[in-house]
Design a protein around this nucleic acid. Structure first.
Lengths: 237, 237
DNA sequence: CCGGAAAAGATTGCATACGATTTTTGCGAC
DNA sequence: GTCGCAAAAATCGTATGCAATCTTTTCCGG
């Protein structure tokens, strides 16, 4: 064993899959609404933008399509997903089914470290809500999602964690599309209440609060079909 | 409008993505245990086997890796997943969380057509159990999984349906790896009881039965680490 | 001026090529 | 015999090229 055997983590992460890095950046852009739903993501464009070949760009787009953030049409290309109200309802139905259980699991595994991480997360969330800049709303949505992702990671089930990553990403899209007002400030206090229940190990309460929280988020959406799907689709492209 | 404008559906389905077709065949092979866990799936081999280029084979393998049926290591290749006992537990924990809810949703949407489909499914399941051939067990596992997939499709939530497809596929792998005996005959009667509850619209009972059913399946597994992971791994390759 | 067909251009699907990395093989030293 | 090391083979990661398909433009008859 020699000191030279060590590999620097920085090197490793730099050497990490480029497709994955591109996927992450694109996902952030989609969730943050910097890329509007319906936007075409051509392989060539993505490739030149990130300075890779179409092969790599294509792999990144394929990943996003698996996550439901991108819709690909054969021989036509990839587009930022434009979830329908029905799809939005399914996203939240899925979350209502999964997240209360995740809250219960997490309540039984909370450590002081976890509590500290949650407090830091909620602090940041509060800061974004206080801000009133142009992209404050974006940061708000993202931070709110991060709370749920943190919870999923505490729950300790890798599979459910991945499901939640997908659901949170799709939720962000849906909220950006159909969100009405600032439920967020309200959501922030709900997050704090959930954390309180988690800290006390009160899994039942955490679960119930989570269910209501999801209901509140969905209740803030306007999921009425705007003007008939045909017209909407016609105007979209 | 001309009769020549029609495109034949058969042509369309034949023209479907080849990568997807390869993925489906590989998935079947993995779930059926025709491909043992740990088996290397080299891009070149898969490509020549299905008579496509590595590009397409690679895409199929990438999809399977997203589903958790294949594990890929950079610069080393793709291998049939070899789920650890911990992973197996997580699969069933996820199912316990999701499937009772799916049963409730399905109970509220059952139509006579659905009932007929379930009956046909259970008939086939019974036939496979009666058979005592060499690969009867495989068919049994597969048919049992199909029951759960049918239920998920009735529930009417596309997102949850896809989650269930992944969970059922991984369960089949886990059962093949860690399964002890024939819980299956027992499982068959449980499936019939669940269907009965669904027919009666008794969602609570269907949900409870489903939860017990999953518990029974998991209880039939032997999830003790066999002889230390190091040795096991050493023997595996 | 307005369809509608045909050609030009753009984009995807797929195969192949080449450098990089890993694994296997061969061979000499101990 | 086996241990270590270097060369060879195999395999992966990625770029690029070509055919197929879709989109846009152009051009022409009405």
């Amino acid at each position: 064993m020699n000191i030279a055997d060590q590999t620097f983590p920085a090197v490793d992460s730099a050497n990490e899959d480029r497709a994955q890095a591109i996927r992450d950046q694109l996902r952030d852009a989609i969730v943050d609404r910097r890329l509007a739903p319906g936007t075409k993501l051509s392989e060539g464009e993505v490739g030149t933008l990130f300075d890779v070949s179409r092969t790599v760009a294509r792999a990144a787009l394929q990943m996003l399509s698996f996550e439901g953030l991108v819709r690909t049409e054969r021989n036509r290309g990839a587009f930022v997903a434009n979830p329908s109200p029905e799809e939005a309802r399914q996203v939240f139905a899925s979350r209502r089914l999964i997240e209360p259980g995740i809250a219960i699991a997490a309540a039984g595994r909370m450590t002081p470290d976890h509590v500290a991480a949650f407090k830091a997360q909620l602090d940041e969330e509060g800061r974004f809500i206080a801000e009133r800049g142009p992209n404050a709303r974006r940061s708000e949505i993202k931070a709110s999602g991060d709370f749920h992702l943190l919870l999923a990671s505490v729950a300790g089930n890798t599979i459910l964690q991945r499901f939640m990553e997908e659901l949170v990403a799709r939720s962000s899209l849906v909220i950006a599309l159909y969100g009405r007002s600032g439920v967020s400030s309200c959501g922030h206090s709900e997050h704090m209440n959930i954390l309180e229940a988690l800290e006390n190990g009160d899994s039942e309460r955490a679960s119930a609060l989570m269910l209501h929280h999801i209901d509140h988020i969905e209740a803030d959406l306007d999921l009425r079909v705007r003007s008939g799907p045909a017209l909407r689709q016609a105007l979209e492209f």
